[in-house]
Structure formats: structure tokens, C-alpha cells
């Protein structure tokens, strides 16, 4: 219980101090969408368009900035010397942010359904989540390795832009708007690659310090 209490406290602090503005931004953008996007009486193809081209972008907003609070290296140093490893803190935050992402996308899907849109709910939910997860993973990994939040947002956005012009030919199995064409296979690849990117990002933080100094010490 004591262990759980500490983890819960980390999640509470993450929600209150770090991720809340990003969640609110996603919710506001989704909430305002009916003003500009039709979310009523859509057929499956048009629903897919809304979910893949709009809703999935919330993955970038919610998952990329997991480690933004520690972008200041002094804060990072202070957190890294503590008993509870920083890696565990990051993992807890990723899971929490992912949880909220699932909730937000879930509610949006239900809202579409209540607005008389006809589409396969579970498939579209998982497909949108896979794409959002991948976009977030790309941003998270870029931020971790290159160390700048601007780059963390830039890379998933560029991937998204590439998908527009000739994207299907160019991106192949990683094409994000495949549900519009009735295909789900690409979503599986995106989900797996998203997971790989998160693992690489977390692994980089965890092992970087050791790898860098061990390699150089051996040479000395």
C-alpha cells in the first residue's frame, strides 16, 4: 500500500502540475470541433477522416511532453539522485497520459456515435488510438534523444504533413489515414512502432549516462 501511495502521488502531481494544460487543450479542441467539422450523420469513411486526420493529433499533445518538466537540467539532476528512479517516474507518467488519451478518444468516439455516425466503434477506436500512440511515441522519442521540445513536436507533425501529399505511396504500411480506405493493417504497424519508440526513448534516458561514460572510460 505504501508503494502504491507513492506511485499515486506521482500520478497526482503529474496531473495537477504537468499534464493538465495539455489535456485541457485536447478536450477544448475536440469540444469545439462541431463548430467547424461535421460530426453528425457521417458514414464510415467520413468518420475515419475525422478520427485519423484530427482526433489522433491529440497523441502529440498528450504524449510528447511527458518529460517536459525536467527539460531544465538542474531539475533533472535533482530528480535523478532520488531513491525512486527517474525511469520509473517517466513510465508512470507515460501510462497515466496514455490512460487519459484513451479516455478522451473514447469519449469522442461515443459522441460521434450519439450523433448518428455509422462506423465500427471498436475498430475505429483502436485504430485512432494506435495512430495517436505512434504520433506521441515519435514526439516523445525525438524529444528524449534530441533534447528539445520543439523537435519533439516537429517530427510527428512532419510525418503528418508527409501523409497528405502522396503519403500512401510514400509511407506504405505506416500510412496514418488507412481507415479512410478501409484498411486496418497499418494501424497494427503504427501501434508496434509506437511501442518501440517509447521503449527507445525510455531506454535512452536510462542507459545513456552509463553507455556514454563506459565507452569513453575504456578508451582512456
Amino acid at each position: 500500500m505504501r508503494y502504491m501511495e507513492r506511485e499515486l502521488q506521482i500520478l497526482k502531481v503529474n496531473l495537477k502540475h504537468f499534464i493538465l494544460p495539455h489535456l485541457l487543450l485536447s478536450i477544448v479542441l475536440m469540444g469545439l470541433s462541431p463548430l467547424a467539422i461535421g460530426i453528425e450523420n457521417l458514414d464510415a469513411q467520413r468518420t475515419a477522416r475525422v478520427l485519423e486526420m484530427f482526433t489522433a493529433l491529440s497523441g502529440i499533445i498528450i504524449l510528447t511532453p511527458v518529460c517536459l518538466p525536467e527539460q531544465n537540467s538542474d531539475i533533472r539532476e535533482l530528480v535523478e539522485v532520488k531513491y525512486l528512479s527517474y525511469t520509473r517516474v517517466i513510465l508512470a507518467r507515460i501510462l497515466e497520459n496514455l490512460f487519459f488519451l484513451m479516455i478522451i478518444i473514447g469519449f469522442y468516439i461515443i459522441w460521434l456515435k450519439l450523433n448518428n455516425c455509422s462506423f465500427p466503434m471498436l475498430k475505429y477506436y483502436l485504430g485512432t488510438l494506435a495512430e495517436a500512440f505512434f504520433l506521441g511515441g515519435l514526439g516523445f522519442c525525438a524529444f528524449m534523444i534530441l533534447g528539445q521540445i520543439a523537435v519533439g513536436y516537429l517530427l510527428p507533425l512532419m510525418y503528418y504533413i508527409m501523409a497528405f501529399g502522396g503519403g500512401r505511396r510514400l509511407l506504405g504500411s505506416l500510412y496514418p489515414f488507412s481507415m479512410i480506405y478501409g484498411s486496418y493493417r497499418e494501424k497494427f504497424y503504427l501501434a508496434v512502432l509506437g511501442l518501440v519508440l517509447f521503449v527507445v526513448g525510455v531506454g535512452y534516458i536510462h542507459f545513456y549516462k552509463k553507455l556514454r561514460y563506459r565507452k569513453r572510460a575504456d578508451k582512456a
Binding site: R2, E5, R6, Q9, I10, V13, H17, L78, V79, K82, Y83, L84, V89
Partner: peptide, 15 residues
């Protein structure tokens, strides 16, 4: 207080 509390969590202290 919040900063101390959070750092206390990271230091492994109970509530």
C-alpha cells in the same frame, strides 16, 4: 510544501 512533498515521495518516504 508541494515541492517538498513531491521530493519526499521521490525519496521513498511514506505519506
Amino acid at each position: 510544501y508541494e515541492a517538498m512533498d513531491y521530493l519526499g515521495v521521490l525519496s521513498g518516504l511514506s505519506k
